[in-house]
Structure formats: structure tokens, C-alpha cells
């Protein structure tokens, strides 16, 4: 099968001008993802796992190497070089990112939040409402919370909402940055169920998990990262 993503010789370092420091985060990373695969990245804290994901999502600018992504809209493109506009469009339609932190608009209800991310893709309001209800129901988010602000939610509730918001779009490529980090067992199972659904639906995923057991149940392959370098384990 064709690679949906292939990273060649990716390096990222941070120059902190005000501290006079230069920090190497990752060096010469090579990685590929076949369409429909679920691949995990493991490694200690600070080894550069998240940096890889953030470079793919263009939250970080990578310095060296290329990130080839096979896009429906733009064909085969290098994510480290695409224009900002193209990246915005890819984020809306093809590439999703879930982190353990919920970064939301203040004063937006849970329902609006999910509906907005569906409507971003051009779905009409009615369909979006329906899909929103379905996914919130799936995550067993208390109905009373649907129309209140996520800032008042508990950690687990925020996280479930966060995942719901990214997953409801059924992205082609989903980047998971420890999405289950602080979830209880029941919520983890919910996430797992949904991940399995997405896998069936053909979503390719690249994920970082602390919970190795959880990850190994799901993933096809594993990369392990140490001091910014990859070693491949299977």
C-alpha cells in the first residue's frame, strides 16, 4: 500500500535567543505511515515524541528534512514547506491533532465547540448538530454539560470532549499526543472503541501513549525514540 506519510531526515532544534541556548530536539528522524495503519511512538519524557507530531502539524517549523504527505486536495506535498493557507485547509479537512490539553475558545459551550469543528468542513448546521449529539452521547458526557462551558469541566470530561471534537471529523490522518494520559479506565475504553471505529473507517493514526498496554493492543507498528533519534521496534 502507498505511504500516506513519509518523513525523511527530519531535524528540529530550538534557538532560544534570550537565553543564548540552542536545543536539539530531534535529529535525522525517518518514519513512514501506510494508509490505514496505526503506528505508535514510545520514549521517555523529553525524548522528542511530541516534537515529531508538532512538526507534522506545523505547530513547529522543522529545519531539515521533509515530511511528505499524500493529500487528497493537493497531491503529494511536503508539510514542512506548504503555505500557511494550505496547512489551514489540511487541518480543517484532512489532518487532526489531539493533545492532552484542551485548548478551547472561552465562552463556547461543549455543543458549539464540536458543532463548529464539523461545520468547518462545510457540513450544514443541522447535520452537524446531529453528529455532535451522537458523539457527545458516545463519550457519555453528561447531558447537563452539553450546554455549559468546558472551562468548568473536570480533567477527564475536558479530555473526552477534546477527543470527541477531533474524532468527529474523521480525519484522514490523526495525530494523537497522549490523548489518554489522565483518563480513568472507563473513559479509556470509550476512546479505544472510537479509535477502533476510526481504524475501520480507514483513518491513519500516529500516536504517543504512556499507557503501553493500551497502545500495543491497537497499533500495527512501533517506533521508539531516544535522545531525539529513532530506533525501530516491532
Amino acid at each position: 500500500m502507498e505511504n500516506i506519510l513519509s518523513i525523511e531526515g527530519l531535524s528540529k532544534s530550538f534557538t532560544l535567543h534570550n537565553l543564548g541556548k540552542h536545543i536539539h530536539a530531534i535529529r535525522d528522524i525517518n518514519l513512514y505511515l501506510r494508509e490505514g495503519e496505526f503506528v505508535g511512538i514510545t520514549g521517555k519524557s523529553g525524548s522528542g515524541k511530541s516534537t515529531v507530531l508538532k512538526c507534522i502539524y506545523r505547530t513547529y517549523c522543522s529545519q531539515e528534512g521533509s515530511i511528505w504527505y499524500n493529500s487528497i486536495r493537493f497531491g503529494k506535498i511536503n508539510l514542512s514547506e506548504v503555505s500557511e493557507r494550505e496547512m489551514i485547509s489540511l487541518r480543517k479537512h484532512e489532518i487532526g491533532y489531539v493533545s492532552q490539553f484542551l485548548d478551547v475558545m472561552p465562552r463556547t459551550t461543549a455543543r458549539e465547540l464540536v458543532a463548529q469543528s464539523i461545520m468547518e468542513m462545510g457540513t450544514d448546521a443541522q447535520t452537524a448538530d446531529l453528529q455532535t449529539e451522537n458523539i457527545l452521547q458516545h463519550f457519555e458526557l453528561d447531558r447537563e454539560l452539553w450546554d455549559s462551558y468546558p472551562t468548568t469541566f473536570s480533567g477527564g470530561e475536558k479530555l473526552r470532549l477534546n477527543i470527541a471534537r477531533a474524532m468527529v471529523k474523521r480525519p484522514r490522518l490523526l495525530l494523537l499526543d497522549e490523548p489518554t494520559a489522565s483518563l480513568d479506565h472507563a473513559s479509556k475504553l470509550k476512546v479505544k472503541e472510537l479509535l477502533e471505529q476510526l481504524i475501520k473507517g480507514g483513518t491513519t493514526m500516529l500516536g504517543i501513549f504512556h499507557d503501553l498496554e493500551f497502545m500495543q493492543d491497537l497499533c500495527d507498528r512501533e517506533y521508539s525514540i531516544e535522545n531525539g533519534n529513532f530506533t525501530i521496534t516491532h
Partner: peptide, 19 residues
């Protein structure tokens, strides 16, 4: 400097932006 807003905030390149 110019870029995606989350990139400017999380990975600013220019000394002034970092500050």
C-alpha cells in the same frame, strides 16, 4: 515574522517574538 498563529506562539523564530 509571520506564520500560523499556533506556530508563532509555540515556536517563535525571531528573538523579539520569543521575548
Amino acid at each position: 515574522e509571520q506564520g500560523l498563529t499556533d506556530q508563532i506562539l509555540e515556536d517563535p523564530q525571531h528573538q523579539y517574538t520569543q521575548q
